[in-house]
């Protein structure tokens, strides 16, 4: 196998990634420092849009919503997933069937999930009206998100649990520990790595959130998150400058936190 042949088969993946992700990401970074006028001419404006972002109350509210959404989805997704995993680990037909049920929403598009619950909670005609009103919508959407994703975290924790040797649990049982004590004092500490992964996934998911908010709260200005704010900006205005700045801020924040976690993990070995 020649090195040249290897390079030839390596390139297509790099080209696709470059053209459809890296180049437009670079353009977004550059575009956040430029203003496009009505005549299509682009002009350098420095940190104008970032200064605007720093004082944009709508953006601050949206970002705060992302933070609250993260804190709410933690128990509804990760917490519920952990409890389900602890309750459903092990053999048995009934348990396998229940696992199948709880994990099933993973197959559904968030659009389907959003529409189903949107109908159920619709003001006026819905079965449980009023749940998407301002002030309640964030909690409601977090619960729906928990409905959709708790099964994913359950599966992740189940994988972590299956890596714990049986002897550990048996030894604790022989010492007289009950099921809850074993779960809390023995299994949970051993699941530290898995829990870290789950927290990270939940964090990234919360700050990338878009589909549920867009579908469940159509044409509503309240309860925006950064991504819905950004898409509205893109769809409404011809000048991509401010949208680009929002994109850079959001991406920078997510990448920054991921990098920080990676660095901390590295120093801990």
């Amino acid at each position: 196998m020649t090195p040249r042949g290897r390079l030839l088969f390596f390139l297509p993946a790099l080209v696709v990634l470059g053209v459809f992700v890296l180049v437009p990401a670079g353009q977004t970074l550059v575009g956040s420092f430029h203003r496009v006028g009505p005549d299509g001419a682009s002009e350098y404006v420095g940190g104008l849009y970032y200064r605007y972002a720093a004082t944009d109350p709508e953006l601050h509210r949206a970002f705060a919503n992302n933070v609250v959404y993260f804190l709410l989805t933690l128990p509804f997704e990760v917490g519920a997933g952990l409890l389900l995993a602890l309750a459903l680990e092990g053999r048995g037909r009934a348990r396998a069937l229940l696992r199948l049920c709880f994990f099933a929403p993973v197959a559904l598009s968030m659009v389907v999930v959003g529409l189903v619950f949107g109908f159920l909670f619709k003001d006026g005609v819905g079965v449980f009206p009023g749940l998407l009103a301002e002030g309640r919508a964030l909690l409601t959407i977090s619960l729906v998100s928990g409905w959709a994703f708790a099964g994913v975290y359950m599966v992740i924790f189940l994988a972590g649990l299956s890596a714990i040797p049986r002897e550990v649990e048996e030894a604790a049982r022989l010492d007289g520990a009950g099921a809850w004590q074993v779960a809390w004092h023995v299994k949970l500490p051993l699941l530290r790595r898995t829990t870290g992964v789950a927290l990270l996934l939940c964090f990234v998911g919360a700050f990338r959130a878009f589909d549920l908010f867009w579908v469940m709260l159509p044409n509503q200005e309240h309860t925006s998150v950064v991504a819905t704010l950004l898409v509205r900006e893109v769809l409404q205005f011809d000048d991509p400058g401010y949208g680009s700045a929002l994109a850079v801020l959001l991406s920078g924040f997510v990448l920054g936190v991921l990098g920080l976690v990676q660095a901390v993990r590295g120093t801990r070995g």
Binding site: L17, V23, P24, G31, V231
Partner: peptide
């Protein structure tokens, strides 16, 4: 370098490139 590019691609949220993807 290439590995770093793919890791970057993995970590970048879709918001980072969706605005200019239309142009591409």
């Amino acid at each position: 370098v290439f590995l770093a590019l793919f890791v970057l691609g993995l970590a970048l949220p879709v918001e980072a490139y969706l605005i200019h993807l239309g142009g591409v």
